[in-house]
Design a protein around this nucleic acid. Structure first.
Length: 709
DNA sequence: CATAGCCGCCTTTTT
DNA sequence: GGCGGCTATG
């Protein structure tokens, strides 16, 4: 059948790779080669005579897409195969069918901060207080609605109380603002595409026939909109192949719906299901730890990881004095590993929140350890980058008022707040865009003559850029940087970092120009809007990788450190009031553990800076769950002898519980015992609380007070 | 109109 | 502890 060598695949993998037509679900644990299955399957399809153009593969990140492109290409010539994230695919679809989608092709894509700006304006225009509707929260709420494909109209209809009615108003105002700005946010990309495919059967059929085979990796993290897009894309043939692992679902907060993968067999009843449970990545030590942890989750289908490797060294679990000692300890261990011949590129440190990278960075600098942060301070979020991008956006999409307002007086050119407001008012009166109003500033009687002249110069500058806006992007970015006065202003302020960053942007634009068949500013802007810093992680460099547990998804390393196993951090405090969220935190830790091939060190610190203050910490409950014996806990070398003496053991209750017994919980209040499961140290208790909530808690953490009756 | 400095607010994870 | 927005001052 094949020119390729599939000898290195197991029989189950091979079965998935060779699957011909119809729906296929690959349920696969970590390290079982599920991404490999997709890669080989693309090659196998092409080998069997399928036109590469008729295959579409969806990955979770741009980085993963890039890797898959390279890997498939090394197996088989596959030009024309579409490999990208859902978002990139949607941009292509929306650009091509923009008329049917009711938008223009040159739309801007709003990042989170631009969304928030827009939300703020919407709240103001609705005459509501940002105090009652925090913009960030409101943005989240609207994002959730969009991920569920609930548009502002239908939300309005179902709104009942004051809060939801107000939210509906903000939502619809926000959509209006986006439309006026000819802009889409991240969620719109998915929602507009999903709705377009739903309502337009011609486009649906056309695309379904274009993509005869659809393959989706990390299916457990798709949201409803993505599910809808996938379903419609395969309407003509049902050749859908998805891979995923419910235990690695870590994006529920972003709308990911684990039910998509759990219900796959209901959605496609003739689906072939292949399970891959062998693990080729980690040592048995690491896997048994991961197994023990994930088994605590109630809401899951049991599954074990079958190791194929021989045992290696034990997993270390270390208690450090504070975050600085922890960082120093890790730096020293890395130096030790390095001396034993391990390259730094095979080492990674994972943490729960981005800000946890700081003490690590300090220690690494001090110890001269080269490192790279995978998505730290986001490159595209820097002020100077956003400024220059705003100039570029205007050239492509003059309707983009957010971009225009950003740069009209950046750098300062004497067009201040009052002038801007007069023009805004004029634009509103005449029902024209802000940029149109700028062009007609001569007619705005409220403006002083000097303002009119300054505005005219500004408009003429932008128009001269527009005239040069065709062809390669890099020269244009450079020209805008110089002619806009941004360069001069940064030089004057001595901000060399900012100038460096812009040069980096120009370099990346040059790379884009080189790779693109037909470079255009529009295409470039729409691409980089979907780019995250995780994508710029350079595996070729011999540096230690620092990243959040979320960013670690899909990666693997020989040597891994996971830090900050403390209550409130992992699991994060914002997840503590909800069992589902706690289970997601557990999956997040599970993902982290299962990235490690050989060496794994898990640590926590007794003290850590929290909101600017040094706080005493409590060890994470996850440590107990993986069976850490705190009496025999490994101590850090810098520690005093009595170092871990005052570890706070979890609260213990000797008493047995009987059904219907009355108990009190610190947080949830009074409740009655529904069920008590005696499992020694792992005993759980299910309680129906007075407010109706039913919770299952680990007894040793529940801290229950027994009420005598 | 520009700038500096202060106050108050938020603070998980990311396409 | 960091950032955005507001205010007072030049």
């Amino acid at each position: 059948m094949s020119r390729h060598c599939y000898d290195n695949l197991t029989s189950s993998q091979l079965q998935a790779v060779r699957h011909k037509e119809g729906p296929l679900l690959v349920i696969a644990g970590p390290g079982s080669g599920k991404t490999r299955v997709i890669t080989y399957r693309i090659a196998a399809l092409i080998d069997s005579g399928v036109n590469p153009r008729n295959i579409c593969a969806i990955t979770f990140t741009n980085k993963a897409a890039e890797e898959m492109r390279q890997r498939t290409f090394s197996l088989v010539p596959n030009s024309g195969t579409h490999i990208s994230t859902f978002h990139s695919l949607c941009v292509r679809i929306l650009r091509r069918y923009h008329e049917q989608a009711g938008i223009r092709a040159n739309f801007s894509i709003y990042s989170e901060s631009e969304q928030t700006t827009c939300i703020k304006n919407a709240i103001k225009e609705c005459e509501l207080e940002t105090g009652n509707f925090p913009p960030a929260r409101t943005r989240e709420a609207i994002s959730t609605l969009k991920n569920k494909l609930i548009d502002s109209e239908s939300y309005k209809e179902q709104a009942e109380d004051f809060f939801t009615k107000a939210l509906a108003k903000i939502y619809s105002r926000y959509q209006h603002l986006l439309q006026v700005n000819n802009s889409l946010d991240f969620d719109d990309l998915l929602m507009k595409t999903a709705l377009l495919l739903e309502k337009d059967s011609d486009i649906r059929k056309e695309l379904s026939n274009r993509f005869r085979f659809l393959l989706i990796d990390e299916y457990q993290d798709t949201n409803h909109a993505q599910y809808c897009i996938a379903k419609n894309l395969v309407c003509e043939h049902n050749n859908i192949c998805v891979t995923g692992d419910p235990d690695q679902s870590i994006y529920r907060w972003r709308g990911a719906d684990i039910r998509n993968i759990l219900a796959f067999e209901k959605d496609w009843p003739d689906a072939v299901v292949i399970k891959l449970e062998e693990n080729f990545r980690s040592t048995p030590n690491i896997l048994s730890l991961a197994d023990r942890l994930i088994a605590v989750n109630q809401n899951r289908k049991p599954k074990t990881l079958i190791p194929t490797k021989k045992n290696g060294s034990d997993v270390s679990i270390i208690c450090f004095d504070d975050h600085n000692v922890e960082s120093q300890g890790i730096a020293e261990k890395i130096i030790e590993l390095s001396k034993s011949g391990i390259s730094l590129r095979n080492i990674a440190v994972f943490y729960r929140i981005n800000s946890a990278s700081r003490p690590l960075e300090e220690a690494f600098i001090k110890n001269k350890i080269p490192y790279q942060i995978v998505r730290g301070v986001e490159f595209y979020n820097r002020k100077e980058i956003r400024d220059i991008l705003a100039y570029l956006k205007i050239l492509v999409n003059p309707q983009d008022e957010v971009a225009c307002l950003r740069i009209i007086n950046t750098p300062a050119r004497g067009i201040g707040k009052s002038s801007t407001e007069r023009i805004l008012a004029y634009a509103a009166r005449k029902k024209i865009s802000f940029f149109e109003a700028l062009k007609k500033s001569a007619d705005v009687s409220e403006l002083s003559n000097s303002s009119k002249i300054k505005i005219k110069v500004f408009v003429e500058m932008l128009e001269s850029f527009t005239a040069a806006a065709n062809g390669p992007v890099a020269p244009l970015v450079e020209r805008v940087f110089v002619d806009s006065g941004l360069e001069a202003s940064l030089k004057k302020g001595g901000d060399n970092d900012a100038i460096e960053n812009i040069n980096e942007l120009i370099n990346s634009a040059a790379v884009y120009d080189g790779q693109s068949q037909e470079p255009s500013l529009l295409d470039y802007l729409q691409q980089i809007a979907l780019f995250s810093d995780a994508d710029s992680y350079d595996t070729a460099q011999d540096k230690v990788a620092l990243m959040t547990l979320h960013a670690a998804k899909g990666l693997e390393f020989d040597n891994i450190f996971i830090i900050g196993l403390e209550d409130g951090l992992l699991p994060h405090e914002r997840s503590s009031d909800n069992d589902d969220e706690l289970e997601e935190e557990r999956r997040l830790f599970f993902v982290g553990i299962t990235r490690a091939r050989q060496f794994l060190q898990i640590s926590y610190a007794k003290y850590r800076i929290f909101r600017g203050q040094l706080m005493r910490t409590v060890p994470s409950q996850f440590l107990y769950e993986i069976g850490v014996d705190f009496g025999k806990l490994q101590k850090s070398e810098t520690a005093e002898d009595d170092y871990c003496d005052d570890i706070e053991e979890p609260y213990r209750i000797e008493a047995q519980f009987t059904s219907n017994q009355l108990v009190r919980h610190k947080k949830f209040g009074l409740g009655r015992v529904k069920q008590f499961l005696e499992m020694g140290d792992n005993s759980t208790i299910t309680i129906r609380f007075d407010d109706g909530r039913i919770k299952t808690l680990m007894l040793k953490y529940a801290n229950l007070e027994v009420i005598d009756t």
